[in-house]
């Protein structure tokens, strides 16, 4: 085996051999499900910035959550009991007269007095990729054949 092929083999072994990990914990989805918000809230509803990170969940809503629940970044199942506890206590972190969970459910930021916007901007230009769309096998095969013939023609011309 030549050296470059050995190198390729080593790289593939290092990067692709391990199995794919399980789904990641997902706090925004867990908050949406538990509080009934119209969107998964952004990371910044709890964290200092959208990058997240331990020790950066310093927003009033995050501190209120931590006070009533045992939270673990790797276990999103702990979110729902904390949300329920906040709801039961009618906690109002920003002191605007509306409880945190009611604000989240209405799509408002529980850290900001007044309504705020929990869902933020919409991304993309509007069209959607249909998740249920079947790939037509014949169309795919035809596309590949056309592409290969174009490449072959290009290489013949070069010679």
């Amino acid at each position: 085996m030549t050296t470059p092929l050995k190198a390729l083999g080593l790289v593939i072994a290092l990067t692709l051999a391990p199995t794919v990990a399980a789904a990641s914990p997902n706090y925004p989805d867990a908050v949406q499900a538990a509080a009934g918000s119209p969107c998964p809230p952004p990371c910044t509803v709890c964290h200092e910035s959208s990058s997240g990170g331990y020790g950066t969940a310093v927003k009033p809503f995050a501190r209120a959550m931590a006070k009533v629940g045992k939270l673990d970044a790797e276990d999103s199942a702990l979110v729902a009991p904390a949300i329920e506890a906040l709801k039961a206590q009618a906690t109002d972190s920003d002191g605007d007269g509306t409880g945190d969970i009611d604000e989240v459910a209405a799509g408002h930021d529980p850290n900001r007095r007044g309504e705020g916007d929990l869902c933020g901007p919409e991304y993309g230009c509007g069209a959607r990729v249909d998740p249920g769309q079947r790939v037509d096998g014949w169309a795919l095969l035809l596309s590949v054949l056309v592409a290969l013939s174009l490449v072959a023609r290009g290489r013949r011309r070069r010679r």
Partner: peptide, 23 residues
């Protein structure tokens, strides 16, 4: 990309749901 993700979404052309394939 996922909803709330700090990266990726700002360059989307299509608008699929959370976790779906997008252009």
């Amino acid at each position: 990309t996922r909803a709330g993700a700090p990266h990726g979404r700002a360059a989307l052309v299509t608008r699929g749901d959370d976790g779906q394939l997008n252009m």
